[in-house]
Simulated assay, not measured.
Amino acid sequence: MVAYRHLGSSGLKITEITYGNWLTHGSQVEADTAIECVHTALDLGITSFDTADVYANGAAEEVLGRALAGQRRESLEIFTKVYWPVGPMGANDVGLSRKHIMEGLNASLRRLGTDYVDLYQAHRYDYETPLEETMAAFADVLRSGKALYIGVSEWTADQIRSGQEMAGQMGFRLVSNQPQYSALWRVIEERVVPACSELGMGQVVWSPMAEGILSGKYLPGQPAPEGSRATDSRGGARMISRWMRPEVLSAVQALRPVAQDVGLSMPQLAIAWVLQHDFVSAAIVGASRPSQLAENVQACGVSLPQDVMEAVDAALGEVVERDPDRTQSPNPRPA
């Protein structure tokens, strides 16, 4: 079964593997399959679910809401996010203004079919809205009971520090950061992780398998497998294209004997590697079919020896992205 970890220094416990529906529900995966994946996650002991209003322009939240209907609400931890353009994408349908936060949360709750979310996160930093306005709106969200905890996603260390200071003035604290993090993408390690650890914020990381690259199914010099994300014309291929370089694919194949030596599949090794880090509260894992989840949860409870962690570093070598300046939000925000 999937273990629980505290979300940073808060009292909230979440499953260390959290089910996420970015790039799947409402777009790449049919609704019936998506609902089956959610039910499989529940059967495997996953009770934490991550989504966002922007995923498939609200359709992902709707599918997740249908899939969780009838479950005991108190036994679930539901996360969603606000910032990116949604709806008809008008001037106020984006950002972290009071108007967009309040209207965005109400719309998310309707789509999810719930009275509250456990974690509401700022999906990016908004350079066009005063931070005081954003944090005051989040404070009111908490007081209303429509969200129980507040976090951020892909904020820089300086933005996180400023946000936490302002949150304190408003009578609450930020409990989480949701960054991209994997053995290939380690840009948070130098600045963001130390800042969050100091401030008691946990990392709920997305793309622990580097959008599927670390699964090892993409071979250098070979066409992408049919039905894989790299062949998806609805957004998946565009997102994964940055990793589809021969030097990256070759380095990833060097991980295969490392995984075999510890009795893990390539996806299990990628997730287990992320979960070795004590600053990680959860790794968000998606799925296009239930069998993927059944395999991935076997990374729970795996303890990788230091020599294995070093072998991963050695195999990936120079293709690992470590530049801390790669943590950033769009400026100006999309109109």
Rank of each mutant, 00 (worst) to 15 (best):
V262C: 09
V38T: 12
A59E: 14
A60D: 05
R73M: 01
V193Y: 14
S303D: 09
V141R: 00
L112F: 07
R73E: 11
K146D: 06
L142T: 11
A311S: 13
R161D: 09
S9R: 15
S153K: 05
M266V: 09
E132T: 15
Q164K: 09
Y181S: 00
A41M: 05
Y116S: 13
Q253H: 15
E226L: 14
R110V: 07
P194E: 00
F279S: 05
M1P: 13
G263V: 07
S10R: 02
Q268M: 09
T40D: 01
P220F: 11
V63F: 08
H25G: 01
W243I: 04
S288H: 11
T40F: 10
D313C: 04
T51F: 06
V302K: 08
E77Y: 11
E165D: 12
R245A: 12
S215W: 14
T129Q: 02
E16W: 03
G227F: 08
R326V: 03
Y181G: 01
P305V: 02
Q253R: 15
L109V: 13
L131Q: 10
W273T: 06
N21R: 00
V152T: 15
A210T: 13
L23C: 09
I46C: 08
Y4A: 08
P225V: 03
P225R: 00
T18N: 04
A283T: 03
S303R: 07
Q28D: 04
Y120M: 05
R124K: 12
Q178N: 09
A67M: 05
C196N: 12
A147H: 01
A157M: 02
T80K: 12
Q276V: 11
K13W: 07
S265P: 07
G212S: 03
C300G: 12
L105E: 06
S9K: 15
V248K: 06
A283F: 04
I160T: 15
V94W: 04
T134F: 13
A314L: 14
G20N: 08
Y120T: 10
R111S: 01
P179D: 04
A31S: 12
T51N: 06
S241R: 14
S207R: 00
